[in-house]
Amino acid sequence: MTSGAYTQLLDLACGVLLLCAVVVLWQRELAVLVRVLAVQGAALAAIAAVLGVHERRWGLLVVAAGVGVLRAGVLPYLLRRALGARTGGAADPPPPAAYRSPYREDVSEARETRPVVNVAASLVTAALLTLLAYAAARPLVALHPTPATRALPVGLAVVLVGFFVLVARRRAIAQVVGFLTLDNGITATAFLAASGVPPIVELGVSFDVLLAVLVLHVLTTRMRAAFGGTDLDDLRELSDR
């Protein structure tokens, strides 16, 4: 691969990664969030693959394939199931016609109807976070400027946006998406900075993330059973009263 094409492909994958993080903030439809997350996982795998081909480290291609399967396939599949569990399971009976008013607030589970921070403000915040990531990453780039490390601010920006999604969204699934975005950002940082952490650590981390999502999946089901929904605003029984 020529150096020009390498840079171009790497930058493109990083751009898609960052764009997906932004779209996660932009979109309210939870099903769309999950799809965007899959695209982001694919972009992450692409970064690893491009680096592997460029540095002629074929082990990295295996890692890329693993990352792709996990983050573009398995995790989105799990989230889709967590979303679908509601419609497939014992859904609430529709309210009697007398109570159905056209002005009733949309309480459907498929959308982030009232995020803690509204969408326009979160987009502006994301812009600020990106600038912050750019500022924070300057010493990282200065240490060893290559096309890959020059893209490090993208990784940090995705981490920050993921953290922000975690804070600013009320739906359980949206929080999980935020957590995974955060994690994708960290993995991207690892790939860009040092072509990924050693395989044993990468394996352990992937396994941990998979288990964490499984645990959150189960907890979502329980939350629906206990609270009748996945609005995290309902989680306010434990406090220092």
Binding site: L166, L182, L216, L219, A226, F227, L235
Partner: peptide, 25 residues
């Protein structure tokens, strides 16, 4: 208990993810 477990997993996993970022750096 569901509330405690959710907060526990989300805050700890996200928090400790930052430690992993530090480790990567």
């Amino acid at each position: 208990s569901v509330e405690a477990a959710w907060k526990y997993v989300v805050i700890c996993s996200a928090g400790i993810a930052l430690a992993f970022l530090g480790t990567v750096l």
